[in-house]
Design a protein around this nucleic acid. Sequence first.
RNA 1: CCAGGGGUGGCGGAGCGGCCAAUCGCAGCAGACUGUAAAUCUGCCGGGUUUAUCCCUACGGGAGUUCGAAUCUCUCCCCCUGGACCA
Length: 369
Amino acid sequence: MNIDEKIALIQEVGEEIVTEEDLRKLFESDEPLITYDGFEPSGQMHIAQGIIRAINTNIFIKTGFTFRMWVADWFAYLNNKMGGDLKKIQTVGKYFIEIWRASGMDLEHTEFLWTSDFIEDGEYWKTIMRIAKTTSLNRILRTVEIMGRNERETLSAAQIIYPCMQTADIFYTMQARVTQLGMDQRKVNMLAREIGEELGFWKPVVVSNHMLMGLNAPPKDIQDPVERAIAMKMSKSMPDSAIFMTDTTKDIERKIQKAYCPEGEIKHNPILEYCKYIIFRAHYLKGQENILKDGFLVKRPAKFGGDVSYQTYEEVEKAFAEKTLFPLDLKNAVAQYIDRLITPVRKHFTENKEAAQLLKQVQSFRITR
RNA sequence: CCAGGGGUGGCGGAGCGGCCAAUCGCAGCAGACUGUAAAUCUGCCGGGUUUAUCCCUACGGGAGUUCGAAUCUCUCCCCCUGGACCA
C-alpha cells in the first residue's frame, strides 16, 4: 500500500484531518505510527462507540498504525460518571473491552491502556503541570465540551484538570502521533497541536471522526454547527436516541421504527447516516467482510415495488432523494443489518460466562451523567 | 468567615399559610392523521388501587409554630454572586 492509498483510507475515517500534509509527512518519516482514542467507561455502549470505533480502528491498522485505546477510568471519575465510583467505572471498562472483542475490532494491533496504571507516575503529572502552566484558564474552559459539558453549567475544579490530563496523554501515556477521536474532542487536540512543539514534543495530526446522529429529530434552535452536532449526537442519557451494543432485535426494531426519517430528506437523516457510516463500512469488521456481497438489500412488499438492492451508498442516497426508496422500507433494512452486526456481541455476552457476569454487573449500576 | 440570593416533580420554572400532587414550558407515553418518523391535534404524565370529591409518599435534611405548611420560625447541609482573610 503506498502513501496515497493510506491517506485515502484515513480520509474514510476523518470528517476532518488536520492536516493532510502533516499526515503525509508522518508517513514519510520514521516516527512511530501510533494513534489513539480514549473513552470514559460509563453506562452502556452505543453503536457509535462500538461499531464505528471498531471500523475506524481497523482502518487505521490497515495503514500500518498501532491503535492505543485509553481506558480513561480516572477521567470518568473526574467527570463524575457512574456516581464517581472508580470500582464501577473499572468494571464498565472491562465490559467495554469485551464488547469490542466481540464486535470485530482487530485486537492484534490494538493496545488497551488504563489511566489507573499511570496515575502514580510522577512523569505523567509533570507533563500535566507543564501543560497547565503553558495554557490560560480561559483556553481550558473553552474545551469543556470534550467532557460533554457546557460553560454555563457549574463545573468542578476537577474539570480543569481533565483537559490538561487529556493533552498530556497524547504526548506521554499514548505517545500518539495521530489523535483519532470524535469531532467533539477537537478542541483539546487543537490545543495539543498548538503547544506540543513548544513543550518539546511534536505536533500531532488530528483525525476527527464524524459524530453519529441520534435517532431523534434534530433540534431546530441551535445555530452553531459544533454545538448543533453535539446536541444531535447519539446520547446515553436519552436511551431511545441510541442503539446499544447489547440491545435485543426487538429493541433495535422499535427504536429504528420510531426514528426521525423524513421522506426524500437526505440531510440530518439518522437512518441514512447509519447506512453510510455503519453498514457500507461494516466490511472492515472482522467476520463481516461479506456483509454486502450481494449489495444492500431492501425487502419490501410487491405493491411497493418488491425487493431491491443497491451496490453503493450513493445509490441508496439517490433513490431516497428521488423518493423511489420509502423511509419505512429503508428502516426495516437498516434494522436488519444493524441487528446482524450486533448479533456476535449479544452472543458473546450470553455464551461467555465471564462476559455475561460483567454485563449483569453493569446493568445493575445506576447511570449518572 | 461575612453579606445578599437560591435549593420545588426527568429538566426548566411558577406557587410564598388552606381551593397544591403542586400553574406553565420541554422531554416522555398513548391515540388520531400519514405506507415510517417528524409536524399538527387529543388524552395521560409522583406511586398505588375498587380510577374515586380514596390512600400513601413528596417541594434540600431535621426540629418546631398552627386546626392546617412547599409556603412561617429555628437549625444543619449544599449552590450562586460579592466581600473579608491569607498578601
